[in-house]
């Protein structure tokens, strides 16, 4: 891990730039102004969202926009959870995400270990195939898979989402492999001489050295599953199986139509897990491994 942070910390590396500071006084001021303005622009919508989620219906439609809700409707959050089945959606989204993390981290790291530590005929070609599948839009396979799953009678159940996850994700396999290649082989070799089998090398030697990449892949897998709209949209139709993004797409409070403050409260709830995960994984994201995000 220490070795990891040494390799992966260019972002926060100290640099010898004292010599530039005197010249940069004016420019630095401009930089601050630009950064402040841009940060303000970035934060504005999310500030508006939180404010809107706490407004009464009348307040929501006030022009110009009021920023401090009056009255503050904490009730909106309770309503969205109760009247609008948000609890069910959160439950569905959560367990799908946790399942995806557990299964994907395990399978992808296992496959990556195969690619990283064994020499076998066809390895390089298969790895290129793997890289190629990273670029394959889900939708290209999805329209055919839909019919297959339909023939199996799986539509409406979680199976079309659960089963494909069992086979790992190309991007995460790639990330794990890159990381494993950077681990010293000497320890594996020593363990092998001591009679340690391939499985135990993976489980007892490789994985314990891989905390940073395990965290990063866990977080990105969670986020990917949490915000996935496409799969739930085509496979899950009934109210009881909806996920949070699908709920947001089809938002409708029975008997009351679309209540915008409630919809905004639902959106805030949907955004909480990514923020929490960022805070938890910040240490790792900050080290330039954020590249995992490019999925």
């Amino acid at each position: 891990m220490a070795q990891m942070s040494a390799r992966m910390s260019p972002v926060s590396a100290p640099s010898l730039r004292g010599w530039r500071i005197p010249r940069l006084k004016g420019r630095r001021l401009t930089a601050y102004i630009i950064l402040f303005a841009f940060s303000f622009l970035l934060i504005l919508p999310f500030a508006w969202l939180i404010s809107a989620s706490l407004k009464s219906e009348a307040d929501y439609f006030a022009v110009p926009t009021t920023w401090i809700p009056n009255p503050i409707m904490w009730q909106n959050y309770a309503d969205v959870l109760n009247e609008y089945n948000m609890l069910t959606y959160i439950g569905n989204s959560l367990w799908l995400a946790v399942y995806s993390v557990v299964v994907n981290v395990f399978v992808s790291s296992l496959v990556a270990y195969g690619f990283a530590r064994f020499r076998f005929r066809g390895r390089n070609i298969l790895f290129v195939v793997l890289l190629a599948t990273m670029m394959l839009p889900t939708q290209v396979t999805a329209i055919s898979l839909y019919r297959t799953f339909r023939n199996l009678g799986w539509i409406g159940s979680f199976l079309p989402i659960l089963v494909p996850r069992l086979f790992g994700s190309a991007f995460d396999i790639f990330l794990f492999r890159q990381y494993f290649l950077g681990l010293p082989r000497e320890i594996d070799e020593a363990a092998k001489l001591d009679g340690c089998g391939a499985w135990r090398i993976y489980w007892n030697i490789i994985l314990p050295q891989s905390a940073p990449i395990l965290v990063v892949v866990s977080i990105t897998t969670f986020l990917y599953s949490w915000r996935d709209l496409w799969n739930p949209l085509i496979y899950l139709s009934s109210e009881g199986t909806r996920t949070v993004p699908l709920g947001l797409l089809l938002f409708f409070v029975p008997g009351r139509g679309t209540l915008f403050p409630l919809l905004m409260a639902a959106a805030v709830i949907a955004l909480i897990p990514p923020v929490v995960l960022y805070v938890v994984g910040q240490r790792y994201f900050d080290r330039g491994i954020v590249v995992a995000e490019v999925r």
């Binding site: 270990y113 195969g114 690619f115 298969l126 394959l136 290209v140 396979t141 396999i173």
Partner: peptide, 28 residues
């Protein structure tokens, strides 16, 4: 040997690729 072990480890992905990648792509 390395070939057998390597293939054993990558089997999950390989099966997934054939079932949920290549086949549906060809069908499309």
């Amino acid at each position: 040997n390395d070939t057998a072990r390597g293939y054993a480890f990558i089997t999950p992905w390989l099966v997934g690729f054939l079932l949920f990648g290549l086949t549906p792509m060809l069908l499309t």
